[in-house]
Design a protein around this nucleic acid. Structure first.
Lengths: 333, 333
DNA sequence: CTGAAAGCGCTTACAG
DNA sequence: CTGAAAGCGCTTACAG
C-alpha cells in the first residue's frame, strides 16, 4: 500500500504539482473549471490525503499547540484542558497535553520536546522553576501563555483566578455563619505556587476584615500523602478550628476522607468549604459548599490569547487576566 | 531571532551536514573525537534544536500516536488515557487526544486529520459507525487498536473489560445480600455500543443463574439528560426494583442525584452498585459498592500493543484482550 | 572516518 | 490560467 502523493495526483490529472497544490489550498480564483474537476476526480480515485508534515515543514506552522500542565490530577486542570481543546478545535488546531507532574525537570523536557516538534505555541501551567527557559521563549518572542499561575517578574500573559477573592468569599461565608476559628489547608507551597500563596493571603485578609484572629498554626501546607496526619494534628490543637477552607479539590477530598474515617459530622463538628467545584459537591451528603472557578471561560481565554499571539494579531494584552470566583452555597457550612 | 539549522551547525563546526546528522543520531562509532567535540561545541554555542518535523518527513515517523475517545466525560476514559500517555512517554512517543463526543462524524474527522498529520498509529474507542474507515485502515495495515469497545466482525485488536463478568459480579452480590428485584440502568444503546450490551447480557445471565426473574421493564437505557425521568418511571412501576446496577459512572451519578433529591436512603430504600470505581466511592455516605475496571493496566496494554504494531514486532496478538473486573464491597448494598 | 548529492512531500514566487 | 524550479530542514546510501 504505497502512499499516494501530490505527484501521483498531478500525473493522473495531467496537470502540474503546483496546480494541484493551488487547488488544495483553495486558491482557484482563476482556475479553469475543467482543471478543477480533473483534479477533484484524481484525488477521489486515488484516495489522496495530503501529508501535513510536509506542508508544515514548508509553511513553518504545524497547527498544533502544546499544553503543559503542572498536575493533571486536579479537576480544575482537566476542565480547563478540555476548554482549551474545544477552542483550538474550532480554529483547526490540535493540542498535545503533557503532564509535568509538578516536576520542573519534566516540564523542561516537555518544553524542549514540544518546541522540537515545532508546535506553534505553548500554554503552560508553570511549575515556576524554569525561569531561564521561560525567558528564552520570551526573548525569541515565541508564543506562550501561562494558565492558573504566574511567575514573579516574568512578563508572560497569564490567565488566572482572582485567588485572593476566592479565599475571601469562603472566609466571609464562614464568618457570616458565625464561625470564629477558621483554618486553611493547602497542598505544598514549597515551590511558591502563586495561587496557593494568594489564597492564603486572601484568607488572612478576610479574617482580619471580619475581626477574626489569624492563628498561624491553623494554616497547613502539605503534600496530599501527608494530609491525614496534618489534619489529625490540626484538629488536636488545644483550641482547634471549627471550620476549614480547603485550598483545592485534592485537599477537600482528604478532609472528607478524614471526616468520614473519624465519624465526624459536617458541618456540626467541622464546617468545610472547598475551592474548586468538584463533581460530587451537589449530591454529596451533606452537599458541599464550594468556591467555583470559571474553568471553561479560563481555558477558552487562554486558547484565544495564544491563538492571537500565534496569528500575530498584536492585540494589546494585559499582563494577566483575572477571573471572578463564585461561591456555591450548599450544606457543609 | 532566526532559527538555527543543521547547516549553521555544520558551518560553525567546519564539517558537513551529514556528519552533524550522524552525530545527532548517535552513529559515531567511527567518528573522530575531535569532530565530536567540535560539533558538540557548535550546538551549544548556537543553541541548536533539531527540527523534528523535517526529520519526520524523511523518516516517515512522527513518534506521535493519536487517541480518539468516544466520550471524555467518563472517568474510565480519563484514567485510561492517562495510562496510555504514561506508557507512550516511556517510549518517547507523544499523544494527541481527541474527543469524538459519541459522534461518528467527529470521529471520522479526527481519524482523517490525525492520519494527515502522519501519526504513527491510532488507539480508538470506536463509536462503531465508521466501518468503512476502520476497514480502510485495516487494508492499509495501518496500526490501530480499539479500546473499551469492539466492532462486530472487525478484526482489530481490542482491549476490553470482561463486561459480562462485571455485571455478574454485581448481580451475584445483590443476590447474596437477599435482593430479588434488581434493575439495570445504562446510557443509550442506540449505537450498539458493545460494553453496554455485554453488561446487560451478563446481568440477565446472572439473574437467571441466581433464580431471579428478568423483568424487561427493569432495564433502562437512556441519555444522561433523560435519566431523571427514566428513574422516576422505573421506581414508580407497580412492583419497582429494590436494587439498581448502574452501567457506568455517569449513570451512577444520576442515580445518586435522584436519590438525594427524593430523600431516599441507600441501601434501605434502594441498593446501588456502579460499574466504574468513581473517585468519591470510598468516602461518599454511604460508601458506594462498585465494580472496578483495571484502567491503568488496560491503557498500558493498549499502548503497548499499538507500539508493537508500529514497530512491526509481529507478535501474535489475540483478537481481544479481556480484563478482569473487581468487586469493591462497600456500604451501598 | 567524512562529504556530495538526492530525496522526503509539499508550497510559492515567478515567468509566460 | 498553469508549470518549472527552488527550497523547507533533515537523513541516508554511497563513494572515497
Amino acid at each position: 500500500m504505497k502512499k499516494v502523493t501530490i505527484a501521483d495526483v498531478a500525473k493522473q490529472a495531467e496537470v502540474s504539482k503546483s496546480t494541484v497544490s493551488q487547488y488544495l489550498n483553495k486558491r482557484y480564483d482563476y482556475m479553469g473549471e475543467q482543471t478543477k474537476k480533473r483534479i477533484q476526480n484524481a484525488i477521489e480515485q486515488l484516495g489522496y490525503q495530503p501529508n501535513f508534515v510536509a506542508r508544515s515543514l514548508k509553511q513553518k506552522s504545524t497547527k498544533t499547540i502544546g499544553v503543559i500542565v503542572a498536575n493533571i490530577l486536579h479537576n480544575f486542570t482537566t476542565e480547563v484542558t478540555r476548554a482549551i481543546e474545544d477552542a483550538c478545535h474550532g480554529a483547526d488546531f490540535h493540542t498535545i497535553i503533557c503532564n509535568a507532574d509538578d516536576d520542573p525537570v519534566k516540564e523542561k523536557h516537555y518544553i524542549e520536546m514540544l518546541r522540537a516538534k515545532q508546535v506553534d505555541g505553548l500554554i503552560i501551567f508553570p511549575t515556576g522553576n524554569n525561569r531561564d527557559l521561560y525567558q528564552q521563549m520570551l526573548d525569541a518572542s515565541y508564543p506562550v501563555v501561562f494558565l492558573d499561575r504566574n511567575v514573579e517578574e516574568m512578563p508572560v500573559t497569564a490567565v488566572m483566578l482572582d485567588n485572593q477573592r476566592a479565599a475571601e468569599l469562603a472566609v466571609d461565608h464562614f464568618a457570616e455563619k458565625g464561625y470564629k476559628r477558621v483554618g486553611m489547608v493547602t497542598t505544598s507551597i514549597f515551590n511558591h505556587v502563586s495561587p496557593r500563596l494568594e489564597r492564603i493571603e486572601g484568607y488572612k485578609k478576610a479574617l482580619n476584615r471580619n475581626g477574626l484572629t489569624v492563628h498561624e498554626d491553623y494554616i497547613i501546607s502539605a503534600e496530599p500523602d501527608h494530609l491525614q496526619e496534618s489534619l489529625e494534628d490540626l484538629l488536636h490543637l488545644d483550641n482547634p478550628p471549627e471550620a476549614i477552607l480547603a485550598g483545592n479539590d485534592l485537599v477537600l477530598i482528604e478532609i472528607l476522607k478524614y471526616v468520614k474515617h473519624k465519624g465526624l459530622k459536617v458541618p456540626e463538628d467541622l464546617a468545610v468549604i472547598g475551592i474548586d467545584d468538584v463533581s460530587f459537591a451537589s449530591f454529596y451528603t451533606p452537599s458541599i459548599t464550594t468556591v467555583a472557578q470559571p474553568t471553561f471561560k479560563m481555558g477558552k481565554m487562554g486558547a484565544e490569547l495564544l491563538l492571537d499571539k500565534i496569528e500575530k494579531k498584536d492585540k494589546k494584552m494585559n499582563p494577566s487576566y483575572r477571573f471572578e470566583p463564585k461561591l456555591m452555597v450548599r450544606d457543609s457550612v
